[in-house]
Design a binder for these strands. Structure first.
Length: 910
RNA sequence: GCGCGAUUAGCUCAGGGGGAGAGCACUACCUUGACACGGUAGGGGUCAUUGGUUCAAAUCCAAUAUCGCGCACCA
């Protein structure tokens, strides 16, 4: 046995304990050699944080939850595997490395592609492990030995195989289309990578003169939020049935585009909403997705007026060389000068921004690679509909369905250098092109030199393979047969903002390539907001650093405090006070354990139990020998049994907050506040000493096991020091308390009897506080029992006399059926007990009379309410029998209490 | 525009058809031999509003208001 230091110091202990776990290899208990083969494996893949990442609150929360699940499963005996690793994060990492180069006044083109990619790898090896180290500091029990990276050679092989397979099945194709373009990152983005934000913009109304007036109409008015794009206008559209413009349509009128002096046609298209603005739309096929579609239908020319930096090209005539912002101003000015500006108004509209750098995106026409999603989506919808995959909370399934059912083709090419290069090769001589599993240098058709596609794949294209690519796919047979035994994974825990980007695509690709769902449960945890309800972000500067929280509250305090705040809500307004409370809870656990150990030591020093070895034998004894057990012993064991059952029952609902609360209430309010206090008087009794000690150890041992997944460090440290009943070397691989075994310990009688004790002690304490009687002043207390169980209650209270005397600081205690009330005593009626606290010479009786009058009024009102209810015919005929029974009992109790208080008031006070 | 969430004590939030709860904060007392990051006892709420269902509504339904989120956007 090892003595615990006086103060709990998370900072030094956590590091030591983590090292102990890691070195012993407990994270994979199968490897560590502990039996677990008979149970189904429990696998979780970590949502791989970006290599550029540092731990933020979302990670802290999400990984706390995953660790709770994994640690619980491990203790229950499941072979567990929590796969950890990082994502290469194309744009994010490339941006970091570009920033680094910029500090040396270089850009990526200065150093060249190979050197740049090399610099990315360098950057990764230097900074890429930060977040993994931080996960360790949190206590996350991941399988770090199998740490994965989305650019590992084996992983790259998987990505390439997926591309080639889909390419061959024509699910991947190349197309010339309008995509979302970030002019700062100079790359295309997928639709889901666009962040729309409402902004107050301007709506410019422009006059477009007709080439020839029709019926006196000389010009049309179009409204636009992007006047600079007019340089690329190749048409003007109205709704085909819009009466205002029918004449013009019939006349096949054309417009002379101002500034560019280009003749462009007017045409009708259903897309145009005649109710909006003037009902006339300028059409820029190269710079707006809707205009692109209309342009296709009308066979309009596509004039791209921006280069990749959103600078106006030659196609923009005299505006060439201007940025889009400069061009906007210049175009508006020129139009105004020429009298083409009709009206300017404010206009609220959504603007797309780059999800990585927040630059305003440009809809841009370019050649890109796409995945045809529709066919792939159907089975992915099916598995959720049929319940093979379940979301928690379930409402997120709607979000998933909505996306899947309205799915659009996925732009997967990125004009970046850091990432998986698209494995498509082009012959520089002939027209040969193909996607290849292996690099090839000469054209199989003409022998000419081959060139690989310059673009890399969307990071999410590789992340979608994470659950199976991390388990050896596509190597055949799967390495270590992992895919066979550890797949599908049990649960995927993540944030709601990547349901589309990641979750949906994992389902779809896993079904296609492995023919299995990637996970059974999807746990969408709440989003952590700041205490005012705002999203935490760098730009707001309102983020909280979990590393700092760990140093302030300990990893255990942070974890428990976060878990407490997890409910079914979609947001979590971060409440740091809960962490403080959790740190205090950790201290409470520490000190309660110290108390138990101190008692144990004292017992050993007296020679009652001479060695740690024999103390080990104490474990479980209380269960074997219930004859030794007091009411309090049986009560706390019964509470422990209920707790274990409740924890097991709520498990699959992922209700972390509720479970944390159950644990805290049991340990603090039941074990510490009552059982430990009661044990003090039992330990003073030679006859009860050993059995009480056994019970303290037994309950503490089990409570530590139940708490371990939430607070792994402190529980491990204490457990190492107590004579627990396990042969296992570490709590993290110890046995989970068996609910079935514990069920035998449920004891309703003991629970009821402790309620009596709590009522008596509570009454005495209340009386003291009410009348300002010093805690040192001993009091005389008598309890009159009544009702059918009067004899049993009397016996029980008498048996607990020593404890009651100690807890209430009482000098004389008696319990008897119908005991007479001493003169000048305070009376309290609790259930069927009348509790008398003698106050002779201690208090002002007028005050006590006053209190009783108040109590009488309260009870009278309560009784009236109950009687009214019972007199209600509807209630008697329709309410459930047990509710009626309960109401009758309540009425009886209240009326009896009222009678006793009334009687008391009628006795003239001395 | 469509969809989702929230509205309960000063604060953060549980709960959920039949007695309004926790933690923090507040008040009083207690330096009791595990713990002042503690103990004991208290004060404090028309459960957003309105209507409906029901014997019974904080709880179920509908509408409204306010706040937040997501999707889709009409230039």
């Amino acid at each position: 046995m090892q003595e615990l230091p006086k103060q709990y110091d998370p900072s030094t202990l956590e590091e030591q304990l983590f090292k102990l776990w890691e070195e012993a290899g407990y994270f994979d208990r199968k490897v560590a050699g502990f039996a677990c083969e008979e149970l189904a494996p429990y696998t979780v893949v970590i949502p791989p944080p970006n290599v550029t990442g540092v731990l933020h609150m979302g990670h802290a929360l999400n990984n706390t939850l995953q660790d709770i699940l994994v640690r619980t499963a491990r203790m229950k005996g499941h072979p567990t595997r929590w796969i950890a690793g990082t994502d290469h994060a194309g744009i994010a990492t490339q941006n970091k490395v570009e920033q680094m180069l910029a500090s040396k006044k270089l850009n990526r083109f200065d150093v060249g592609r190979d050197a740049f990619v090399e610099a990315c790898w360098q950057w990764r090896s230097e900074y890429g492990s930060t977040i993994i180290e931080q996960l360790k500091a949190m206590g996350c029990s991941c399988d770090y030995e199998r740490e994965q990276f989305t650019m590992d050679p084996a992983y790259a092989e998987a990505v390439r195989k997926v591309f080639v397979e889909w390419y061959n099945k024509e699910l991947i194709y190349r197309g010339y289309r309008i995509i979302n373009w970030c002019p700062r990152c100079t790359t295309a983005l997928a639709d889901d990578e666009v962040e729309h934000r409402d902004e107050l913009g301007t709506l410019w109304h422009l006059r477009y003169p007709l080439v020839e007036p029709v019926d006196g109409v000389e010009y049309l008015v179009v409204a636009t939020t992007r006047p600079e794009t007019m340089l690329g206008d190749t048409g003007v559209a109205v709704h085909p049935t819009d009466k205002r413009y029918l004449k013009l349509l019939n006349a096949e009128a054309a417009v002379m585009l101002p500034l560019m002096n280009r003749k462009i046609p007017l045409f009708g298209d259903d897309y145009v909403d005649p109710a909006f603005g003037t009902g006339v739309v300028k059409v820029t096929p190269a710079h707006d997705p809707n205009d692109f579609d209309m342009g296709q239908r009308q066979n309009l020319e596509q004039i791209n007026i921006f280069d990749e930096h959103a600078v106006v090209t030659e196609a923009g005539g005299s505006f060439a060389g201007m940025t889009r912002e400069q061009a906007r101003e210049a175009v508006v000015q020129s139009l105004d000068k020429l009298g083409f500006l009709e009206k300017v108004e404010e206009h609220q509209h959504a603007v797309g921004h780059c999800y990585r750098c927040d630059t305003t995106l440009e809809p841009w026409l370019s050649e890109q690679w796409f995945v045809a999603m529709q066919k792939l989506a159907a089975p992915a919808i099916e598995v959720v509909k049929s319940g093979k995959v379940t979301f928690y909370p379930k409402r997120w399934e709607n979000t998933y369905f909505h996306w899947m059912e309205n799915i659009r083709d996925w732009c997967i090419s990125r004009q970046l250098w850091w990432g998986h290069r698209i494995p498509v090769f082009y012959c520089t001589v002939c027209a040969w092109t193909d996607a290849l599993d292996e690099d090839l240098f000469a054209c199989p058709q003409c022998g000419g030199a081959l060139k690989q596609d310059e673009d890399v794949l969307d990071t999410w294209f590789s992340s979608q393979l994470w659950p199976f690519a991390t388990m050896g796919w596509p190597s055949a047979p799967y390495a270590d047969d992992e895919l066979a035994s550890y797949y599908p994974t049990q649960v995927l825990s993540t944030a709601r903002d990547i349901i589309f980007l990641w979750v949906a695509r994992m389902v779809l690709s896993s079904l296609y390539f492995v023919d299995k769902v990637p996970f059974y449960d999807v746990l969408i945890h709440p989003t952590v907001l700041d205490r005012f309800g705002n999203i935490m972000s760098k730009s707001r500067g309102n983020g909280i650093d979990p590393v700092e929280l760990i140093s302030n509250y300990g990893a255990d305090g942070m974890r428990f405090g976060l878990a407490l705040q997890v409910t079914g809500n979609q947001d979590l307004k971060f409440n740091e006070e809960k962490l403080l409370g959790s740190r205090n809870f950790a201290t409470k656990i520490w000190n309660a354990s110290r108390f138990v150990l101190m008692q144990l030591e004292e017992l050993g020093a007296e020679g009652k139990e001479s060695s740690a070895q024999s103390m080990k034998s104490l474990h479980n004894c209380i269960k074997a020998d219930q004859s030794q057990a007091t009411t309090a012993d049986r009560w706390i064991l019964s509470r422990l049994a209920h707790l274990t059952e409740a924890l097991n029952n709520s498990e699959t609902t992922y209700d972390f907050g509720a479970r944390a609360r159950l644990l805290q209430r049991f340990f603090w309010n039941e074990f510490c506040d009552w059982y430990i206090e009661i044990s003090k008087s039992q330990l003073a009794d030679d006859a009860l000493r050993t059995s009480t000690m056994q019970n303290l150890i037994y309950v503490l041992d089990n409570a530590l096991r139940l708490l371990h997944p939430y607070m792994p460090f402190i529980t491990e440290k204490i457990w190492q020091s107590i004579p627990h009943g396990s042969t296992r070397p570490s709590l993290m691989v110890a046995e989970w308390p068996c609910a079935k075994t514990l069920a035998d310990l449920v004891d309703d009688v003991a629970e009821m009897h402790i309620e009596l004790l709590i009522a008596v002690v509570g009454t005495v304490r209340s009386v003291r506080a009410r009348y300002g009687i010093s805690p040192r002043q001993e009091l005389s207390v008598a309890v009159s029992t009544g009702g059918a169980l009067a004899t049993e209650h009397t016996a029980s209270l008498s048996a607990m006399e020593a404890t009651i005397i100690k807890l209430g600081n009482i000098d004389s205690f008696t319990a008897a059926p119908g005991a007479t009330k001493p003169d000048n005593a305070s009376i309290a009626v609790v259930d069927e007990l009348e509790i008398y606290v003698e106050l002779e010479g201690l208090v002002d009786f007028a005050a006590e009379r006053e209190r009783l009058l108040k109590e009488q009024t309260k009870l009278t009102q309560e009784l009236l309410k109950l009687e009214k209810k019972l007199a209600n015919e509807g209630f008697i005929s329709k309410a459930a029998p047990d509710i009626i029974e309960k109401t009758k009992n309540d009425a009886l109790e209240v009326s009896s209490a009222l009678a006793r208080i009334t009687a008391q008031l009628e006795v003239p006070s001395a």
